[in-house]
Every structure is written in C-alpha cells, then in structure tokens.
C-alpha cells in the first residue's frame, strides 16, 4: 500500500552480549499508515524497545545489529543505511522519538529554547535567530504556557509533564513522517498522562504523521491506538484493530494478559484475578517452537517443535497453531 508511511518486514535484530546472542527482535512485521497510531504492546524484554531503536538506527553499539528483514519508510530502505546518513537525513527529520524518562531526555545545562531549536537548526538550516523564534512557536503548539518566557528557562524549572511537552515539541519540530513514542506516559501521574495523550492526538491530527506507540500499559494503548501489535519474547503474536483485539483477544497470551488486569467499574467481588502461570523466558535461552508454549493453556506437541508464523485471519494476524 502506498499510504503506509512505514513497512517493516521480517525484521531481525540481535544483541551480541558476553553471555550469548539475544534474538531481541525475531521476524517482526508490521506497517503503519499515515495518521495511524500503532500500539506495540509487550512486557519488559519482549523486544518492543529494541524494535523502536532498530527503526531509529539507535541500537546499542557494538552489541546490537540488524541481521535481517527490511524497514521501509515511504518506500526507502533504512536497514542498510550507515550512521552518518541516519543522523543527517532520517533521525529528527523523518523519524523522531519521544522517550520514556522526562528527567533524563533533556540536557540540564542548555536552555529549553536552544534544545528545541537544535533540530530546527540542524535540519532546516535556519539561523539561530529564526530557529529560536520557531522554537517559541513550537512550544506554543504543544501548549507550554507563556512560551516566549519559558524558552530561556532550564529543564529543572519544568515539571515532568511539561518536560514531556518540550520533548514532544522537539520531536515534531521538523514535521517527521513517523513519530516513535517509547512509554512516554509511564513516568507520569494519571491526570498528567491524560493531558499528554490528548497532546499526542492533537499533534498527529495536525501533521498526519504515523505514530508508533510502545507501551506495556493495556489501558493507555486502548485509549490512544488505532491498531495494536502484541509482542512476546521478541515476536509479534497478534496484530489487530484495537476494538477487535480488546473485544475478542485471540492469542492465548493476549487473552491471558487482558484477563489478568484489574479494571475499574468491573466488580471483582474480592475474587481472584486470572493469572498466566510461569514467567517470561530468558531472552538468552528461548524455548524451541512457540516461545509462549511453556505458559500456554492450549499447548500441543507441535507448539514445542515449530514456531507458528503470523497468519492473516479475517483482518487480524495471529501467530498460534491452535487458534488458527
């Protein structure tokens, strides 16, 4: 489809550590259309962050390497690009990122204005004066109050929620086609979380960019995303439209995950929650076949031998022998 801003096909990323090789991203495929928000849901170690870093060309070096598959941004292949090209043409301009920790994402010794102006200067080749003026506009756009005054302030004078707004302003300053947000709301309180999600919606409406939203929080994903891809141990196990997925999760892992989260408004009567037995596998020592098999209630012999491919089934994709 030509309306897809991003197409990822069979992406494989390995981390070469002293103790062995971690298949952090294992044959992952997904696409994002313009104006669409794709949620990438997974637990810690599921490979969701490594997928994001692969797209940004920011894998930890020298340990991380893309060993297979393709990443196409507007039809342009990114997986083979070198670092210099990535820095000059892609990062901050075509793909931008909002990261998790609002406390460490900004440099404490530079003013907010100069940090927001930096990507503008770099990619639009503006003068310092115009870049700073544009930075003020950007801060206004993300609803930082009295931006003309605030550009001369330093990060420590901003609260966590405001810093995330500043980071959002930096990320969208050059109108990227794809925005990657890695757990941007996790460090924030719920009342601030809501405000940031509104802002992300607004920024996306204005720019029509695609948004890859990486999170472990099923509630946040439900509230923000159009489609959702669920990752487990480096692989995508289920991809579906958000309403379909939450209404009828198909993969046993997705099902278990949704059933195990307490919800407001649903009476539990002090009853027990459903819980998935066992623990996620050691990424250095993934089991043969389906990685979820040791914890699965539908497991059959075949699951221990072969890993199930992601198969299209009526508008959603599922990687499970039993459900198919």
């Amino acid at each position: 489809m030509s309306t897809n801003v991003l197409e990822v096909q069979d992406l494989q990323t390995h981390l070469h550590l002293r103790r062995g090789v971690v298949k952090a991203v294992n044959q992952v495929s997904f696409s994002i259309a313009y104006g669409e928000t794709l949620g990438l849901i997974g637990e810690s170690g599921s490979g969701k962050t490594m997928t994001g870093l692969s797209l940004l060309g920011l894998l930890p070096r020298p340990a991380g390497r893309i060993v297979g598959g393709s990443i196409r941004l507007n039809g342009r292949e990114l997986s083979q690009l070198n670092q210099a090209t990535y820095a000059a043409q892609i990062r901050g301009k075509e793909i931008a990122m909002i990261s998790q920790d609002p406390m460490t994402s900004l440099n404490p010794v530079f003013s907010i204005g100069s940090q927001v102006a930096a990507p503008i200067r770099r990619h639009r080749h503006d003068t310092d004066q115009t870049a700073l003026a544009l930075a003020t506009e950007e801060l206004h756009r993300v609803r930082v109050p009295s931006p003309a005054l605030r550009i001369s302030h330093f990060p420590h004078q901003f609260s966590g929620g405001m810093r995330q707004r500043v980071i959002a302003a930096m990320a969208t300053a050059c109108r990227p086609n794809l925005l990657i947000a890695d757990e941007p709301t996790s460090a924030l309180d719920v009342t601030i979380q809501v405000q940031l999600m509104d802002l992300l919606d607004q920024l996306q409406d204005e720019s029509g960019a695609g948004l890859l939203f990486i999170t472990h929080d099923l509630g946040v994903a439900a509230s923000l995303c159009d489609r959702v891809a669920v990752m487990y141990a480096g692989s995508v196990v289920e991809t579906a439209a958000v309403t379909d997925l939450y209404a009828a999760p198909a993969h046993p892992y997705t099902r278990g995950l949704l059933a195990s989260v307490p919800r407001i408004g649903i009476k539990t009567e002090r009853g027990r929650l459903f819980s998935i037995p066992g623990t996620p596998p050691d990424p250095l020592d993934l089991p043969m076949g389906c990685a979820f098999a040791p914890r699965c209630d539908l497991v059959k012999d075949r699951c221990h031998r072969e890993s199930p491919p992601l198969i299209d089934k009526g508008g959603r994709e599922i990687a499970c022998f039993e459900v198919q």
Binding site: G161, D189, I192, A222, I264
Partner: peptide, 25 residues
C-alpha cells in the same frame, strides 16, 4: 472524580475523559 476518570481503561470503546482537571500538582 478526576483521578478515577483519568485512569485509562483497557477498553477502547470508553472515550478518554480529559476535561476534568487541568494543570499539575
């Protein structure tokens, strides 16, 4: 009221309720 309604529910059919309170602690 604001706190409870701000909790993102794992249910996409529930609209986000964000107009209750502004600002930060």
């Amino acid at each position: 009221q604001a706190l409870i309604s701000a909790v993102p529910e794992p249910d996409p059919t529930i609209a986000r309720n964000s107009n209750l309170i502004r600002g930060e602690v």
